[in-house]
Structures are given as C-alpha cells and as structure tokens.
C-alpha cells in the first residue's frame, strides 16, 4: 500500500501512526515509515504524518525519528491551543538540531468540544496551515450519533470554517466513513463545500476521484470566472466603474473570488 501512496492524484497523503496502528506495533510502524520515506521519492504530494497524541508515550520518540525534510506536515490529534503551540516549539528545536531546510506545517485535528470552542486560537498558532474537523471523535465527545445528514456537526463545521478562513488556512472536512457509498460521499462532500470547507480527508483511495471532482472548480464555474475577469479587464480599459456579467452586478468580492478560482484551476491543471 505504501508504494502506491502517490498514484491517486490526491493533494497529500496522510501516513497514520495513531489509530490505525496497534499499540504493540507503534515502534515498528515508525521504523517502517521512516525507512520508506528515506528510500522513496514523492513528486508533487504533500506528505502528512498523523502522529500520536502529544502527551502519549510515543509522540516524542516518533517526532525525533520522523521529522525530516522528507515530510511536509504533522497532523496533531486532539489538538488544543496549548498542545499545538507546544508542537510548534518542539518543531523549532528539531528543525534547528537536524539542520533542516524545510519548515514543517501543522494540521490540528479539531475533535473535542473544547477544541471547537478554541478553534480560532488553534488556527492562530505559528505553522498551522489547515484545520481538520475530526467528526468521529467529536461526536463521541458530544455524546451524539453520526448521522447521514451530519446535523450533529453543523455548528462545529461552521466554526472550523470560520476559524480557518479567518487565518487564510485550509478548512478540511471530516472523512466520510462509508467506503462503498459513492453517492453518500458525493452528497457529504458537496454539502461540506457549500458551507465553506475547501478540502476533505479520504479514508479510502476509491474516494479520491469523487472528492477531487466536488472540490475542483467545475467547467461552469471556470467559464463564469473567466467572464468576470474579462469583464473587469474590459471595464478597466474603458474606464467603467461598474459592470455586469450575465445580468448580475459585479463587485470586488466577486472579482476576487473569480481570480482565486482561476488560480486554483490553474494549479490543478484544469485550464
């Protein structure tokens, strides 16, 4: 499985050292991953490691071993403002002692009720480049069942989006756990996109295509954005202050959004 991590056109791949690894296999997993990363060159893929909780007996040893220029980001479970700050400081030291060229990012997992409430503080920590909503653990903390419509996560999703966007970070949605339900995944992803999430974690490679399709700008969106940008250029050249596209008045936020969307489409090779 490791060797196929880079073939599915995801933007990043998360190597999990936490829940996916049995307690008795923790050392072996770190060792295997470390050796794999040393021997394998990835192209155009963000390498993310989900580490164990920072207060666990494993995290310090694994950080020593795993932090290197071969990785990009650490994913921190049960994140709080305090432990996210602590991780950031540990990385300062490790990067210095290992004479690294890279600055490792952090994606805190917002999966406790208390973390949702301090999402803004967590987002403000140096190195944080995205917030991930952890729906399963959060539901446990909230003492609610996960449902198909995700009503139980509505507020948390909204707060994560607000905190992430306030700091210009990625708002990453919780994974959809039914790996054989493409239609359900499509609905859940579309809903997340609608409320402001701009990425989603996949827990099976077969989910990547659907998530990419939902979160990528559609042909219609790209065409509209192109019209807006062209109309703006035309308006500027003719000295017009206000203009419309398809009968709708266009103002600065719409132009900014169109430009952002075209940037994204360019980056993902959709133009």
């Amino acid at each position: 499985m490791l060797q196929n991590a880079d073939i599915f056109q995801s933007d990043g791949v998360i190597f999990d050292l936490e829940d996916a690894v049995m307690l008795s296999e923790k050392d072996a997993a770190v060792h295997l991953l470390d050796n794999f990363l040393k021997s394998y060159a990835f192209e155009n893929l963000e390498i993310v490691i989900r580490i164990n909780q920072l207060d666990s007996e494993f995290s310090r040893v694994e950080l020593e071993q795993i932090v290197s220029d071969k990785i990009d980001t650490l994913m921190l479970p049960k994140a709080t403002a305090k432990n996210t700050n602590a991780l950031s400081k540990m990385l300062d030291k490790l990067e210095k002692s290992k004479k690294m060229n890279k600055k490792i990012g952090i994606i805190p997992i917002i999966e406790l009720a208390s973390s949702v409430l301090e999402a803004k503080e967590i987002a403000s920590v140096n190195r944080v480049n995205g917030l991930l909503l952890g729906g399963e653990d959060l539901s446990t903390d909230l003492e609610v069942e996960r449902t198909e419509d995700g009503l139980e996560l509505l507020l948390a999703r909204g707060l994560v989006v607000l905190a992430a966007k306030a700091y210009k970070l990625d708002a990453i949605d919780t994974p959809y756990t039914k790996t054989n339900d493409e239609e359900g995944l499509n609905k859940d992803s579309s809903y997340a996109k609608k409320i402001g999430m701009n990425a989603k974690v996949c827990i099976h490679p077969n989910q990547i295509d659907t998530v990419n399709t939902v979160f990528s700008p559609s042909i219609q969106e790209i065409e509209y954005a192109r019209k807006v940008v062209k109309a703006e250029a035309d308006a500027l050249s003719t000295g017009k202050g206000a203009f419309t596209v398809d009968g709708k008045m266009i103002d600065k936020p719409i132009i900014d959004r169109a430009k952002k969307l075209l940037d994204k489409a360019q980056r993902w090779g959709l133009l």
């Binding site: 196929n4 073939i7 599915f8 054989n180 099976h204 490679p205 077969n206 295509d209």
Partner: peptide, 11 residues
C-alpha cells in the same frame, strides 16, 4: 474490482 489501483487503471 474494488482494488483502488486496478480501478485507477480502468478509469
């Protein structure tokens, strides 16, 4: 197949 590698090949 449900194998993700083979599904990618098929697509």
């Amino acid at each position: 197949t449900r194998d993700p590698v083979q599904l990618k090949i098929a697509k």
